[in-house]
Structures are given as structure tokens and as C-alpha cells.
Design a protein around this nucleic acid. Sequence first.
DNA 1: CACCAGGCAAGCC
DNA 2: GGCTTGCATGGT
Length: 296
Amino acid sequence: MNAETINNDVVITNQPDFELSHIFDCGQCFRFERTADNEYTGTAFGKTVTASKQNDKIILRSTSMEDFKNIWYNYLDLGRDYTSIKKELSSGGDKVMEKAVRYGGGIRILNQELWETLISFIISASNNIPRIKKIIGLLCSSFGEPHEYMGKIYYSFPSPERIAALELDELSVIRAGFRDKYILECARGVADGRIDLDALKKADTAAAKKELMKLYGVGNKVSDCILLFGMGRFDSFPVDVWIKRIMEYCYFGSEQQSIKTISEFAAERYGRLGGIAQQYLFFYARECRIGVHNGG
DNA sequence: CACCAGGCAAGCC
DNA sequence: GGCTTGCATGGT
């Protein structure tokens, strides 16, 4: 990887295993939108950026080398060697994973803020991705801090304190439905110190998961997503309806399995790379609509 | 109209 | 422990 500043852009070259559509359409992140061909715009850590890619050149528009080094390099997980990860996942003779890796070869697991990940995946429960994005967008535009980027106003993800100060009926403007009480309760816990997210980051995966599952609105699947997307725990393998479907279809002859069975199968097969394997499978399942026969 | 969406909490046994 | 049901909202 090489990065240099050209005018107000940061231009990245020699960066393999990086495709914006794979990264932002694999369900890990809800705050980036496609704004043109091979171009996505979104906000993280209170800053907005437009990322595009053309001819193996990645351009982060209207930003600084300082922000690249402090925020985007780590956020986009540019320090990790996905070539060897993909090789390892593909080398076991697993034809399904081989194909999934080919499909989503440009996926990177974003290093997102833990607080934002917690709330985002509480909102994801029994919901669909367009509406998850809509609710989170409303949460940010209603209660986040505004900033200007390339002549437009964008909003940060609101702080725990900001949400904690709300009443339930004020929060209802985001149309989160039954999830609003989960959001409020977690915000109040983080704001008053009952929930210590920084301490959680230091715990091992099993202990962190146990703590996460104590939170109102956080169960087995949502905690796995928080571990994977907000804490970089690649040994976490979230099993949602898509993963359940594709695993049953590809590994169990389309026969229904319990979530526990699928989790154990994944842990055995993918081990410490489970979370990354999950993202390749999720992207593959959705792109090909595997197991979906209702004409989407 | 029914059913589904990156599930979870609460109530049962 | 495992299983069932209700849950807000919006889309098809």
C-alpha cells in the first residue's frame, strides 16, 4: 500500500483485496451509500469521506493525510493481509468457501466504533437492511452533530449521553419500533457507566460475549455482530437468516439445522477466521440470493 | 390479505 | 436447558 496527497485527495495505490462494493454491500456497515459508479460516501468517527476506485487507484476525496493516518487507514483495515487470509480459507478443499471468496474477494472487515456498532445491530434485529439504514440515518440526523463536507451537511453518530437524555417518545421519531426501548436503555447504561465498553474491549471473546448478552436487546446473534464488527473478533461467526439459509443449502443438503449446529460447524471449519468467512458467505448468499425462491 | 426482514425478551415447560 | 409467542414498522 502506498498513499499520497494530491490536491485535497488522498490517493492510495498498490492495495490488493479492496473493492468498495464488496466492503459496503456485505452488511457490516449501514452508514455508507453508493453515490456514483465505484464511489461510496459515508461517515465514521465524526468525519465524512467519499471513496472511489478506478484502475486500481483508490481515492479518498477532500480529506487529509492526517485523517487518513488517524482514521481511514484503520477504519478500512488497510494494515491487514487479506491475500493470505483468502488463501487459507480457500485451501481446505471447501468448494463453497472457494467460490464465496472469489465472489467477495475485495471484502475488508471495517474497524467500526463499538458504541455505534452496539446500537446499529440492536436496530438490525428482525429488520431489513434498507430500513436499518433509514432508522440509523434518522437517529444521526435527529440527534447527531452536523458537519459540512464538500458543500453538504452530514451528521455524526449521536453520543450515548445525547440519547440517554431523551425520553422514549422523543426517540420514536426514528421509527425503530419495539427496538427504541433497547436503544434508550443501552444508551443510559453507557452514559452512566453501568456499561463499560472500553473494559469490554479488553476481555476475551467468550467473556465479552457473556457481558454483551446481558444488555437489553442484545442476544446471541447481535452480540456476535458487535464482537466481529465493533471489536475485531474474527473468531465470531454471526448466524442470521441469510447465513442459516446458505449453510443449510451448501453444507446440509438444504435440510433445516439449528443455529447451534451451524455455529459449531463454522467454528470447527473456519476457526479464528470465522467472522471473515461469514462475510464472504453473506455477500455471496445475498448477491446470488441463495435459498431464496420468491423472485427477488 | 399474509408473510418477511442480519432477533430478542418473556413466559412457558 | 429448549420451545413458543408477541413485538413496531414497512415492504411485497
